[in-house]
Write a protein that binds this DNA or RNA. Structure first.
Lengths: 245, 245
DNA sequence: TATTCGAGTGTATGACATACACATCGCTGA
DNA sequence: TCAGCGATGTGTATGTCATACACTCGAATA
């Protein structure tokens, strides 16, 4: 028995001395997705390669494939991870319009916390649990409206897609930074747009339609989804009242 | 002099016999983009690699770089090529709503003729001439509405993004085919959606909200942008009349 | 006629996803 | 206690991709 102690000790030392050959837990699906999400949050979607995800975890590239069928699957898992329903969606809401507005605010926050989401090359309709959960919540807010289920589904899609588009445009404009890029876009249009060929656009650019309203403070200089959302919800309201709701 | 004839003849034969070493014109930007668009139309965006584009033209991969700065630039050029304004956009229209609806119909046709457009990994706002032309036409339809230029721009963006999203979803669902994929999606939801966890979604699925209306003929089985567009335009109408238009 | 220049080429590099065969280790059942 | 099996992680290799860079060659220019 006594001999085991040195042996055990030696092994302990060896383990301690080794350059931490990996967190000796285990590689799990959740750790893989987590690392991928961290990478994307830090350096964007392009930074997510199988090699880099594995490296960040201290494993080899191929080890990931024990937990994930393909990179595409990993991207899907990343989306699902990040789309966890926030608790405030369970607060009570005051009518369908208020409910949808809260829903949008929550979704918007998620999209801004993870700007890469809108660039995922994911093809196909929503299918992961958390995506469906969001859809479910959107439909729930429309419960009392008297709309048909198909109309509710249409409204949910419409609203979600609007947020997605604006978030994407915002991310593309680099609105993460100080919002200078929007001004740059406006400038660019100002230089490119020929008034003879594009009179209506020229007028819009000249009127500053593609710039921030004068005096917008820097911290509010980001693309805003609320204009479009208001139009959409007005349209939905019209549908609801015309249906006799 | 007589000796030249055989020499010339031999050369002629050689030229004729050679496997058409390339259309002996010249490689041009337009030919490059054209070939890329043909590839994408035939086999999707993934089929567009620099190597394949060049091969289709009978040149080497690197020759393309004489005409195009990078693959990204090529993708942008493809978009611009395909986004040429259709003539029917110059027909007169009957009020802003009719104008926007025609605009959407034209855009929708373009998106269906080239389903890969919605999958272009293009980042940044519209910037090519033809993209701006579309925007200009959309703004033009709103001329008589009394909306501010910023509001017009917001409406144009809203409408365009709706079309884009629906087209993308449709392309993802494979609506090019007979529309079976939508039915498959509905089935999938039917199997995945747990009524305890997602009661509202469950109800919608059970009501057939994610399926085609019963009796939809096969040729009409594609995702439709018109529901969402009608809501948006109703909302825009509300804005216009509230502004005292 | 000599030179320059632009179009097209060939070769090479490094990132990437992923197939496949192998090693290792802990657990199960004898 | 041990045999062996299944699961987990590894190493090597392949094919595709965009693209850098140095070149050839022929036509236009000086």
């Amino acid at each position: 028995m006594k001999e085991e102690l040195p042996a055990g000790l030696a092994e302990l030392w060896a383990r301690l001395g080794a350059p931490e050959p990996a967190p000796r837990n285990r590689l799990t699906l959740s750790r893989v997705t987590g690392a991928a999400v961290e990478l994307a949050d830090a350096d964007g979607l392009d930074a997510v390669s199988m090699a880099r995800v594995a490296e960040r975890l201290g494993y080899t590239t191929m080890s990931l494939y024990r937990h994930v069928k393909s990179k595409n699957e990993l991207l899907l898992l990343m989306l699902d991870r990040v789309a966890a329903l926030p608790p405030e969606l369970d607060e009570p809401f005051d009518g369908w319009r208020d409910g949808l507005e809260r829903w949008c605010r929550a979704q918007w926050e998620m999209l801004h916390a993870h700007p890469w989401v809108v660039h995922l090359p994911i093809t196909g309709p929503p299918i992961t649990p958390n995506q469906l959960a969001w859809t479910d919540r959107a439909l729930r807010t429309l419960r009392g409206t008297g709309l048909s289920e198909a109309d509710k589904a249409g409204v949910a899609l419409l609203v979600a897609s609007h947020l997605h588009t604006v978030a994407r445009l915002g991310a593309d404009l680099g609105s993460a930074a100080s919002g200078e890029s929007i001004a740059a876009y406006s400038d660019l249009l100002g230089r490119l747009v020929d008034g003879a060929r594009f009179p209506a656009l020229r007028a819009a650019v000249d009127a500053g339609a593609y710039d921030y309203p004068a005096g917008t403070p820097a911290e509010e200089r980001r693309l805003d989804y609320r204009f479009g959302l208001a139009r959409i919800l007005d349209g939905v309201a019209a549908l609801i009242s015309s249906a006799g709701g």
